[in-house]
Design a binder for these strands. Structure first.
Length: 491
RNA sequence: CGGGGUGUAGCGCAGUUGGCUAGCGCGCCACGUUCGGGACGUGGAGGCCGAAGGUUCGAGUCCUUUCACCCCGACCA
C-alpha cells in the first residue's frame, strides 16, 4: 500500500483492487466476473442512488420496473442493437433441474428446455419498448419519462472490480417523446444532470461531449457522455445519455396519433450510470492512505475517536462526545462515535482513513481539560486543535470546504494532464510518456480513429459540447479538420 | 478466444536435487501489561498442499489430465 504514486500508476489496477478490498467496499465473488458489494461499499452506492433519484424526480421522472428476462425474439428486432450486445449475453435455456441418474449431484433436465430462450438483460431498451407499445396510443400519452433501478448482466471477456463486472447495478432511464426536438432536449438535459452530479456530489470534473460513430451506443443516433480523468491519466466514461431517434419505435412498432390525427413513430432516449461511478470515485480521489470520499457521498462524514486509559475516563469523554454528536446530527451530519475498546486509537485512525471518512475528531483527557478537540481532515491530512465551542458550525463549514477542495484538486490535476498535440510524433509521445487527455485535430472518419487506436491504444473520448471551431489538419492523415477532439487511453 | 502467470491456514507467502511431525508473517482466541498514529509479552486454535489419475518404499515437490483465478490483448458502462 505504501507505494509511491509512480509505481501505483504503473500497476493501477493492482493498487485499486487492493484499495477497494482494504477499504472494505467490495470483493470478487465466487461467480465469474461478479462482485460482492460489502455493507460500507453499498452505503456509498445508496448515497449515490439517493442523490441521483432526487435529481431525476426533480426533472419530472418516475421510477418503474421491467423484467430481468428478455425473450430472444425481442432482442433481435433492432439490428444494430443486437450486433452491439449479442457477444456478451447470458442466456436462460432451461427451467428445471433433476437428480443426476448417475448419482453425480444435480443436472439440467433436458426435458425442460424453454421453447424460446430468455436473455438476461444487458440493458432494457427492447423489453421496455415492447411494453411501451401498449402504453402509447395518442400524443396525450406522451411523454413517458421512466427510470429503472436494476441490475444487468454483460458477459464481458475481461472484468474489473467496479469498472466492468459481469453483473452490475445501475439506473436506466427510458423516455418516449412526441418530437425529435423534445427527445434531443431530454437526452441533453440528462447529460447535464449527470455532469452536475459528478461535479457537485462526486467532486469529479467531467468533460461533456458526444461520442464518435465508433463509440456510440448500439442503436443510438447520438450518444452524449461525461468523461472523467483518473489519477493515472486514463479516461473513464462515467455516464451516457442516448438520443435513439425512432429506431426502437420502428423496431417495436410504437406509434401514436398526433395532434394532426396522423400516425407517427415516437422519439426515444435512454440514459444510464452504474456502479462504475464508485470506481470513478475511488480512482479520482484516493491516495496511498486509502479512500478519500467527498463529504456529500460519505456514509460517515465524521468519525469521533476517544482516547482514554481507564473506563472512568471513557465515560467522561463519552459524555462530552454525545453533546458534540447531538449538535452535529442536528445539522444533518452523519457521525460515527467509535468507542470500541477492542481497538486502539492509532488503529482506528488508520481505519477511517482507509474508509475515506472526510473528518475525524479525536478527543482525550487533555482536550477535556482544555475544552478542545483534535480535528483531522482526510483530504489534506491536516490536524488542528479546535475549541469545542461552535464545533458543529466549524465542521459543517469544513465539510463544505473539503467537498469543493476535492473538486478543485481534481480539476487542477486534469488541467495539468491535458495536452495539445499538433503533430503525429507529438501525439504519440504524449500518449506514451505523459498520458492524460490529448486535444488534437481529426479528419472525422471512423477509419482514422480506428488506425490511431491500433497504433496508440488511444481513442476519441468525446467531441466536447460547445467546442470552439478552428481550422486545422488531422493529426494522422493531414486532411482538413474543423475542431480538436479529446483523445485518451481509457478503461 | 490468443499470450503469460499463479493455485500450500482467513489474507500474504516460503518450502532445495522427492525423505521423517508442512513452515513464516499478518490476522484470529485467552490472559496480562498498554492506550494522543496500525502496541507488546506469554500461551493457543486453525491445512486431505486446487481436483483426479499415475510413477515410487515414500509426492507439496516428478509425470499426465483437468479446474479455478490473476495479468496482458481483442470486446465493453
Amino acid at each position: 500500500m505504501a507505494k509511491d504514486f509512480a509505481t501505483r500508476a504503473e500497476n493501477y489496477s493492482e493498487w485499486y483492487n487492493e484499495l477497494v478490498l482494504r477499504a472494505d467496499l467490495a470483493e470478487n465473488s465466487a461467480v465469474r466476473g461478479c462482485m460482492v458489494i460489502k455493507p460500507y461499499g453499498y452505503a456509498i452506492w445508496e448515497k449515490i442512488q439517493g442523490a441521483l433519484d432526487a435529481m431525476f424526480k426533480e426533472t419530472g421522472h418516475v421510477n418503474a420496473y421491467f423484467p430481468l428476462f428478455i425473450p430472444n425474439s425481442f432482442f433481435s428486432k433492432e439490428a444494430s442493437h443486437v450486433e452491439g450486445f449479442a457477444k456478451e449475453c447470458a442466456v436462460v435455456t432451461h427451467y428445471r433441474l433433476k437428480n443426476d441418474p448417475n448419482g453425480k449431484g444435480i443436472v439440467v433436465d433436458e426435458n425442460a428446455r424453454l421453447e424460446e430462450e430468455l436473455i438476461v438483460r444487458p440493458t432494457s431498451e427492447t423489453i421496455i419498448w415492447d411494453t411501451y407499445r401498449n402504453w402509447i396510443k395518442s400524443y396525450r400519452d406522451l411523454p413517458i419519462l421512466c427510470n429503472q433501478w436494476a441490475n444487468v448482466v454483460r458477459w464481458e471477456m475481461r472484468t474489473r472490480l467496479f469498472l466492468r463486472t459481469a453483473e452490475f447495478l445501475w439506473q436506466e432511464g427510458h423516455t418516449a417523446h412526441e418530437t425529435e426536438a423534445e427527445a434531443m432536449e431530454e437526452a441533453r438535459k440528462m447529460l447535464e444532470v449527470y455532469a452536475d452530479f459528478a461535479e457537485n456530489w462526486m467532486s469529479v470534473p467531467v468533460l461533456k461531449g458526444t461520442k464518435t460513430a465508433n463509440e456510440r451506443f448500439a442503436g443510438a443516433l447520438e450518444t452524449f457522455c461525461i468523461e472523467a480523468m483518473m489519477q493515472d491519466g486514463k479516461a473513464l466514461q462515467a455516464g451516457t445519455s442516448h438520443f435513439l431517434g425512432q429506431n426502437f419505435a420502428k423496431a417495436f412498432d410504437v406509434k401514436y396519433l398526433s395532434r394532426e390525427n396522423k400516425l407517427e413513430y415516437v422519439w426515444a432516449t435512454s440514459w444510464g450510470v452504474s456502479t462504475r461511478l464508485m470506481g470513478a470515485l475511488i480512482m479520482a480521489h484516493s491516495d496511498d492512505n486509502g479512500l478519500v470520499l467527498p463529504p456529500k457521498l460519505a456514509p460517515i462524514q465524521v468519525a469521533i475517536i476517544p482516547i482514554y486509559k481507564q473506563a472512568e475516563q471513557l465515560a467522561a469523554i463519552s459524555e462530552k462526545v454525545h453533546e458534540i454528536e447531538k449538535a452535529l446530527k442536528a445539522r444533518g451530519i452523519s457521525v460515527k462515535y467509535d468507542d470500541r475498546d477492542a481497538y486502539k486509537p492509532g488503529w482506528k485512525f488508520n481505519e477511517y482513513e482507509f474508509k475515506g471518512v472526510p473528518v475525524r475528531l479525536a478527543i482525550g483527557p487533555r482536550d477535556l481539560e482544555q475544552g478542545t478537540v483534535e480535528v483531522a481532515r482526510r483530504d489534506t491530512m491536516e490536524k488542528t486543535v479546535c475549541s469545542l465551542e461552535n464545533i458543529d458550525a466549524l465542521i459543517e463549514n469544513l465539510l463544505a470546504e473539503i467537498q469543493t477542495n476535492l473538486l478543485q484538486k481534481a480539476k487542477n490535476f486534469r488541467t495539468e494532464n491535458t495536452h495539445t498535440a499538433n503533430t503525429w510524433d507529438e501525439f504519440k509521445d504524449i500518449i506514451e510518456n505523459k498520458s492524460g487527455f490529448v486535444l488534437a485535430h481529426w479528419d472525422g472518419t471512423p477509419e482514422t480513429e480506428q488506425k490511431i487506436k491500433e497504433e496508440t491504444k488511444a481513442t476519441i473520448r468525446c467531441i466536447p459540447l460547445n467546442n470552439s471551431l478552428e481550422e486545422g489538419k488531422c493529426i494522422y492523415t493531414g486532411k482538413p479538420s474543423t475542431q480538436k477532439v479529446v483523445f485518451a487511453k481509457s478503461y
